[in-house]
Amino acid sequence: MTPLLEVSDLNISFPRDGAPLVPVDDVSFMVSPGELVALVGESGCGKTLTGLALPRLLPRGAVLGPRSAVRFDGTDLTRLSERELRSYRGRRIAMVFQDPMTSLNPVMRIGTQIAEAIHAHRKVSSRDARERVLALLAEVGIADPPARINAYPHQLSGGMRQRVLIAMALAGQPDLLIADEPTTALDVTVQAQILELLDRLRAARGMAVLLISHDLGIVAGRADRVLVMYAGRIVESAATAQLFAHPAHPYTRGLFASIPRLDATTTRLTPIRGTVPRPDQWPDGCRFHPRCPVAVSRCLTQRPPLELVAPDQRAACWVAQGAAT
């Protein structure tokens, strides 16, 4: 299958006095049409920036590396002008963010906000737009759309607001939806609803989803593939079942050991030692080596490439690749 999205050597840096900060360092991955790919990592690992870089919505001051390419449906988005990009943003690539309150305009009715999203992409009469809004609200599981269409954001719960944002994202009928921590601000039982919704939408529309999350647990049952990021790099990429059955990278293994389980048989978890380093303190070689229980001398100096370690599984780890010497 030809990939819908092909990111290669994505490199994002912030110039400053001394060496530039490089919060995303040569990240490469692919997303196929209709695939749900999860990008997982802890805070500060670069996963949010990676998501923003795809439709080139980078914060001021960020610089894309010269070899970076984001090929979407065959077109390298990094080479497009701002004007050309606009026909991709929202229409072919849509985004949903973590905080459903600040992403909505508090003084505008939700129906109007969704209608604006529709008008932004195609010329429609306001009557047709209203029909579309009602259809979208129903599609994202909001009960009684005609009654809700005139509500203001503050009249809705967090879960409902997230549904409204998803409806806005769907307005342009995108091929790829980037969802950055879409459930983090929500309650556990509501989280499950939103994830269920994303999964259903993807199946119904054949839309690919890039789900960015800090939580390995929530992606488990839903993602086709998981990318694990650590300190600006992808350290492991594998089919979900393979990753959960046989995590190859010591960081991935450490994450699993850190997650409390309902069927806990032991009282103590085995955490990863140390803390996530700040971007200006990332070490040489493999960036995980100071926290790694199996690091060897090569890990201190040489960066491990992301290589196949099993079918459907790549890991950036000298030890996992059997090349530890």
Binding site: S157, T189, Q193, L216, G221, F244
Partner: peptide, 19 residues
């Protein structure tokens, strides 16, 4: 609703409706 890190063990979920 507790995320089960092991997809092999994932059972039928109860997804509550509403808030």
């Amino acid at each position: 609703a507790v995320p089960e890190p092991d997809p092999a063990k994932a059972t039928a979920r109860i997804v509550l409706v509403g808030d």
